[in-house]
Amino acid sequence: MDMQPTDPLSTTFAALADPTRRAILARLADGEASVKDLSAPFDMSQPAVSKHLRVLERAGLIERGRQAQWRPRTLRAEPLRDIAEWLDRYRQHWEGSYDRLDDYLRDLQETKEHRDGDDDGSDTHRPG
């Protein structure tokens, strides 16, 4: 059903593309939570939330606790660190600055809506 990933991070980016999933990650950044807790803020059914959780799990962004019967979900930071590594390599090559990258990574960690990329220092933004 999904397209074949083109690189190791494509699954992560695909998982992060959805605002509900970013909100779930933001909640888990504060600590583990049950599916019921995670479903509470959303106007959607528990099965719908579970579907999002499966996507996050496949992307390695969350895992299920083993000990407790209610299988709390916890955040896994590794894929986000991988994104940071990739971007830092990119920044180095292009001799870019940390200014915006720091913001981007903070947004990623806090899984907020992305800001529009409009502050690269140039003062004209006309197409073509």
Partner: peptide, 14 residues
């Protein structure tokens, strides 16, 4: 999302 990240590195200038 990958493009957002790449652009955030300041790559446009480079």
């Amino acid at each position: 999302e990958a493009i957002d990240g790449a652009l955030a590195t300041g790559m446009v200038k480079g």
